[in-house]
Computed example of a mutant assay.
Amino acid sequence: MKLNETLAKAFSEQITLEIESSVAYIQLAIALDDADLPGMASWMRIQSDEERTHAAKFIAHVTDRGNRPQIGELSAPKDPGTDVNAVFEAALAHEQKVSDSIRALYRLAQAEGDIDSLPLLSWFVEEQIEEEATLSEILGRLRMISNDGPGLLRLDSELGARTSAE
């Protein structure tokens, strides 16, 4: 069943936001590389890959439904500087923005009676809960270690052990 024009446009906007998320994570990785935290930078690059995967899921849904998604204009991310807390706070704020957008898309699909979109959107709601929880945990640990060099390097090593989008 083809998406109606309102939903097709909303899905295209979500696809654009997912691609922006990928770019934002690259910018955050650059900041962490500049702060000499290669493990955290690697973690951010993997997040960037995951966001492109999310965009691809949305694209597949739209095209499978007989529509053609349109990627909109991308906004350039802000450079958070090299303060590690600011970098992860920026990541959390961005994920919260994505969560709000997905919830709005879910509500729109419900309002339009598009039950075919709800399973995909439910998966994304769960995914966003996980994304925000992970970033909140990292921020909590960063606050706990404060400016403790060995603690920061240990967390950098731990985050750098991530090998793929989980």
Rank of each mutant, 00 (worst) to 15 (best):
N85G: 08
N85F: 08
N85W: 03
N85A: 12
N85L: 15
A86V: 06
V87I: 13
V87G: 06
V87P: 00
F88Q: 00
F88W: 10
E89K: 15
E89F: 02
E89L: 12
E89R: 15
E89W: 01
A90M: 14
A91L: 07
A91W: 01
A91V: 03
A91P: 06
L92N: 02
A93I: 06
A93S: 15
A93Q: 13
H94L: 15
E95D: 13
E95R: 02
E95N: 03
Q96V: 06
Q96L: 10
K97Q: 15
K97S: 13
K97Y: 13
K97N: 14
V98E: 12
V98H: 02
S99Y: 06
S99T: 15
S99Q: 11
D100S: 15
D100K: 14
S101T: 10
S101A: 15
S101Q: 11
I102Q: 01
I102S: 06
R103I: 04
R103S: 12
A104M: 02
A104P: 07
A104Y: 04
Y106D: 05
Y106S: 08
Y106G: 08
R107S: 13
R107L: 12
L108K: 11
A109F: 00
A109H: 03
Q110P: 02
Q110M: 11
Q110I: 08
Q110G: 13
E112Y: 01
E112L: 08
G113I: 07
D114Q: 08
D114S: 13
I115W: 03
I115S: 11
I115E: 05
I115G: 00
D116C: 03
D116S: 14
S117R: 06
S117Q: 09
L118R: 13
P119I: 05
P119A: 06
P119H: 07
P119D: 10
L120T: 09
